[in-house]
Structures are given as C-alpha cells and as structure tokens.
C-alpha cells in the first residue's frame, strides 16, 4: 500500500515497525572516564547506531521512492538530531541521566571530563525534561523522528531538474503523511481541540531545540577530531565530513 493511501493509523504502525532494535555498546567501561575514553565510547556507539539508522530510514514508507541524492542529503543533514532524539526518548524516565545505551549511562557530572561537553549534556537534559513534562507518547516520538528526517533539508535545496522536482514533491507529500499521523496520535489522547493544537505546537517547537543541540554537538565532535582527542572513522567520519 502506498503511503498516500494509508490511514494515519497504518502509517504510524509502519513507522513503529521500522524502529531500530536496542543497541549495546558492548565495551568494558573503565571508570573514571578520561576525555579520550568517553569520546571513544560515544563515537563507537554513534557509528553502530548510524548503520541501523540507514535501515530505519529505508523502512519509512515512501523514503526509498525519493531520489538517491535526496536520501543522502536528508540523512547527512539530520543524523545527529535523530541520534539525540533517540537518546532523549531512552532517557525520558531517568531524570538527570543520559541513557546512551543500556550498558552506557552517564550522569550530567560525568561530562566534566570532556572539554565542552557539559554544555551539550545540559541542553540534552533540558530538552529531555521538556518531553517528560509533555509526557511524550511512543507514537508521537516515532512521528517526530520521521519529521526530523524529512524536514532536515527542505529549506536548503532548490530543485533544478524534473527528477529533482518530482522527488521534492514526493517529499512534501510524505511530510503531509507524517504530520497527519502526528495529529492523529495526539487526537487519541482525549484532549480538547484547543489542547490538541497546543500540544502539536509544543512538540514541533521542540524540534528547533534539537536542531540547535545537534549543531553544537557537530561543532564539538569536529573540534575533538581536529585536536586528535578521538579517532573518527567509517560511516561516522563520512557523515561528519559532510557537515564540516
């Protein structure tokens, strides 16, 4: 069934099925962390998650119908935002903690060992608190993640060819489906019409904060790489170079 013919319920069901499995760092963490060891654990985990993120994106109904160029552009623009939203979702029931994976959990204070990371941890914790206050539902979370992916490059690409224009139109229709799905998820919560509208506004406004933290995180990782604090390789290197 094409996504344009799916009900919002079916669409959400498909993106729930696309959710990546829980991922483990699978390293012996030697505490206290050093700047290098913490950065190495963070980047190792990110690299593993990135591979699963590509598979997740391909399962979003309609994503693989976009041009390959658009698929690459979208993923390279949003990857850190997607990782951060996932982190917030895992951490939402753990105030003051960042649950990078079931075997890699950090307190805010542990960020002290990496120069400049505490500020990013605080921004991540603040956005997570906001999601906690809003009592973010799983259906809403998966819609927001798909929105981040599909919206990530919308204002920077001007279609030139007929193929690019076709892909952009497909992208816009796909965004419509995701917005419909989010509206439907909110409508199930038994809120008044006005409360539903406000909730939609509050949830989507949080996306601008996530973009902001992601930009900070990207700058931080680039600095750590430049200073040789951490060796960045494989898919993560490809994604990071795309942003520097």
């Amino acid at each position: 069934v094409h996504h344009s013919a799916m009900s919002p319920e079916e669409f959400i069901s498909r993106i729930m099925e696309a959710e990546p499995p829980e991922i483990y760092l699978m390293e012996d963490l030697k505490k206290p962390f050093t700047e290098a060891s913490m950065m190495m654990s963070l980047t190792n985990l990110a690299d593993k998650e990135l591979v699963l993120m590509i598979s997740w994106a391909k399962k979003i109904p309609g994503f693989v119908e976009l041009s390959l160029t658009d698929q690459i552009h979208l993923l390279k623009c949003c990857w850190l935002e997607i990782l951060m939203l996932g982190l917030m979702w895992r951490s939402v029931d753990h105030p003051g903690k960042l649950i990078f994976s079931p075997d890699f959990k950090l307190n805010r204070e542990e960020g002290q060992c990496v120069e400049g990371i505490m500020e990013i941890f605080d921004m991540l914790l603040a956005a997570t608190s906001r999601f906690r206050e809003l009592k973010l539902q799983r259906e809403e979370y998966v819609c927001l993640k798909a929105m981040i992916l599909l919206n990530s490059n919308l204002c920077t690409s001007a279609p030139q060819t007929a193929e690019e224009l076709e892909s952009r139109n497909k992208l816009l229709r796909l965004l419509d489906s995701v917005i419909d799905a989010l509206v439907w998820a909110i409508s199930k919560m038994g809120l008044s019409t006005q409360q539903q509208t406000l909730r939609l506004g509050h949830l989507t406004m949080l996306l601008s904060h996530i973009r902001h933290v992601s930009n900070k995180g990207m700058d931080h990782l680039s600095t750590m790489k430049r200073k040789n604090v951490v060796l960045v390789y494989d898919l993560l290197l490809e994604m990071l170079d795309a942003n520097t």
Partner: peptide, 24 residues
C-alpha cells in the same frame, strides 16, 4: 567529488539489502 563518492558507505547502505545488523 560526486555525492556518491563522498558518501561511499552511506550510498552502499542505501542501495544494498544486506542486513544492517550484520554490518553493525
């Protein structure tokens, strides 16, 4: 450098059907 060359791994992962769990 073309987009495909600049993003070899990403391009491959988008195009192939190998289980990403194996690759991870």
């Amino acid at each position: 450098t073309s987009l495909k060359e600049k993003h070899k791994i990403l391009h491959q992962l988008l195009q192939n059907s190998t289980s990403p769990v194996d690759l991870a």
